[in-house]
Write a protein that binds this DNA or RNA. Structure first.
Lengths: 223, 223
DNA sequence: TCTGTCTTCACCCCAAAGGGTGAAGGCCGG
DNA sequence: CCGGCCTTCACCCTTTGGGGTGAAGACAGA
């Protein structure tokens, strides 16, 4: 098992909550996995074995980000680390060069073994799909409300707090297209401005922070 | 029971990030408080003196969850451990059988003394009522971040998704004053626009969000 | 094939938000 | 008493967001 030293891992472009939690979770597994870098930008600055990256449920635009990361020799194997286990997102990520796709709902030790499996080249696709009813919902946020992929994507970015200019940078759309998608999106979800859209997004499971996954086998409803 | 030994505490239904943080914070106080269980479900599995539980400001059945915990003899005293110190949430929790309500923003040693006070039966309501040594936790969310009452008020309204005009209706301020407060508020919390302010507000316990039952079929605003 | 939906973008317009400055009165503490 | 902070408001200006229209290509299904 320990024939090789600790796996060197980086976390790229994630929220501080997640960053802190990851570091803390993996601290006790430091012989197995060491988080050597936590980066708010989208690149890594030093050679690592595995780079964890969250696509944040975006459909197209992030494909490129994954591709770039995968092409970066410093980044090692790119593992998408996300709350959203939608098959379409998974395959999109893998198609774009991600080595594996791991759920953020994993507890520390499962995360560690998933990362080890990835590092050994044994795991190529999905990490343990947690059997507990929550994560799996076949559709991804917004789709059942009739949002098109693009609309959902811009809404996700809005829900991150980005302005239109930033959105059009990330998506490589023109500012006009961004506005168009935002408008049609507002009509679909029935809001009239950005603030309400953000709240809608949070209520509907965009923005992967807390309140998203609540394990309870007791048979509660839960989204 | 073990009035002499360490208080036995459990943390129920929180994310591993928080769980890790709590355990790590209390490690150095293990003579006073021992976290004997961290449970992802909503129950405890062994007798403890205090059960920490986060309502996650939440959506619906919290009241019930708290009641159930409080009714569980294994759980001991139920202490709601939350970011959100909204008075309505506090009193709801207490009405449902919680023994106390403690802020997640407490540093380790204050958390420890709060838990000790609870365990001795001295603390029945809020955690540090800002008299005891440290002023963590104020009357309203955001006070500790240096927001003035008015700033906090407008921020709360922003976090509800209101526009400036609506805010000045509710507050009986002129539109100019509203803008002034918003600007100074932005400076204080370090954001540059409304979207980020909303996210900040949500992260910091504004938006009590009570009774927001998500109705999927109706779809529209219910509020 | 034709129709509808999705995607992309452009141009125009107006309302809203963001931001600076100045100023007045109130209250508190040194 | 004075300096500092909070509160309130006004006037200014620039940027952003929201909304309407039109249009083109891509792709799906009837």
């Amino acid at each position: 098992m320990r024939t090789m030293g600790a796996i060197r891992a980086a976390l790229v472009n994630d929220y501080e909550v997640v960053a802190q939690g990851l570091v803390s979770m993996l601290r006790e597994y430091r012989d197995a996995v060491r988080v050597v870098e936590v980066d708010l930008s989208r690149t890594v600055g030093q050679p690592v074995d595995i780079t964890l990256y969250d696509t944040f449920a975006a459909t197209q635009g992030d494909g490129e980000a994954v591709r770039k990361l995968a092409a970066n020799p410093l980044a090692g194997k790119v593992v998408v680390y996300s709350w959203n286990l939608d098959p379409a997102l998974v395959s999109a990520a893998l198609a774009n060069g991600a080595t594996a796709y791991v759920s953020k709902s994993l507890p520390a030790r499962h995360l560690v073994s998933a990362l080890q499996a990835v590092h050994r080249g044994e795991l190529r696709a999905l990490a343990p799909a947690d059997g507990s009813g929550t994560g799996v919902r076949g559709d991804w946020p917004g789709r059942e409300e009739g949002l098109t992929p693009r609309e959902a994507e811009v809404l996700a970015l809005i829900t991150q707090g980005l302005g239109n200019a930033e959105i059009c940078e990330r998506t490589h759309l023109s500012i006009n297209s961004v506005k168009t998608f935002i408008r049609s999106c507002y009509r679909r979800i029935g809001v009239t401005n950005r603030s309400q859209a953000i709240l809608w997004g949070i209520e509907h499971g965009f923005r992967p922070d807390r309140a998203r996954i609540r394990v309870d086998e007791a048979g509660r409803e839960q989204r």
